[in-house]
Simulated assay, not measured.
Amino acid sequence: METLMENEVFRAFTTYAAIVILKMLLMAPLTAYYRITRGAFSNDEDVAMKATEERKKLLRTHPDVERVRRCHQNDIENVIPFVGLALLYTLTGPELSTALLHFRIFAGSRICHTISYVCALPQPCRGLSWMVGILTTFSMAYRVLSTVLLI
């Protein structure tokens, strides 16, 4: 483990993997905040202590809540594959500067994606930030496959 932590590329990977995973995890409290402040809950047990009429009003969807929830889902669909591929990419021995470029671009694209999603910025903001992140992940996948392909 010590030799792994001496590897600068692996340390860069752990840094940026932690950043994007933490950003993804922070989406759950943000969703809860939006649910509470918008009074829009999705489960009966969330409003069980309320009167029957109030429960009916609170069990509803709200566009702001749905936007944050979809952003969180999009994080799950993109961050988890990035972390797995970035780990494999790290094991191929890339140059530190190239690895940092991949990791920074992906992290920046996910942060921009979240801002554009939550703040409802006009397209193509969200689409472009998603595309940059996915292309970065594909670039790492290409490196992994071209380095170790055994078919």
Rank of each mutant, 00 (worst) to 15 (best):
Y142L: 04
I134C: 07
L30W: 05
A32R: 11
V132T: 14
P63K: 09
A17M: 00
E2H: 05
I151C: 05
L58F: 08
V144I: 09
F103Y: 11
H72C: 09
Y117Q: 15
F13L: 09
N74A: 03
T137N: 07
A32V: 15
D75P: 13
A12F: 00
R11N: 07
H113L: 01
M49P: 03
A86R: 11
L145E: 05
G39Q: 00
F138G: 14
L121P: 08
T61H: 08
G39R: 06
V65R: 13
V148S: 06
K50P: 00
R11P: 12
L22C: 02
A18D: 04
S42L: 12
H72S: 11
V132Q: 09
T92D: 01
M27K: 03
P122G: 10
H102P: 02
A99D: 00
P122C: 05
S42T: 13
F13I: 00
F103K: 00
A48N: 04
S146P: 08
T52H: 06
C125S: 13
E45R: 15
T90K: 05
A86S: 15
P29Q: 06
A120R: 11
R69D: 14
T137S: 09
E8K: 14
C112Q: 02
I115H: 02
R38A: 05
F106Y: 07
T137I: 12
L85D: 12
R35D: 03
T92V: 09
R35W: 06
N78K: 06
Y34I: 05
L58S: 07
L59F: 06
K50H: 14
E45Y: 13
M1Q: 13
N7F: 08
G108L: 03
C119I: 08
C119T: 14
N7W: 09
S109E: 03
V144W: 01
E54Q: 13
F13W: 05
G93T: 10
T137R: 05
L85V: 14
E54A: 14
R126H: 14
M1A: 06
A51W: 07
F10E: 08
I134L: 10
L22E: 02
A120Y: 04
R55K: 15
M5C: 06
P94A: 01
L135K: 02
T92E: 10
A17V: 02
L25H: 07
V68M: 03
L25F: 03
S116R: 10
T3K: 14
G84N: 06
D75G: 03
A17T: 01
D64S: 11
I19T: 01
G93L: 08
E54N: 08
D64Q: 04
T3Y: 06
L149F: 14
N74C: 06
T15C: 02
E66W: 13
L150M: 12
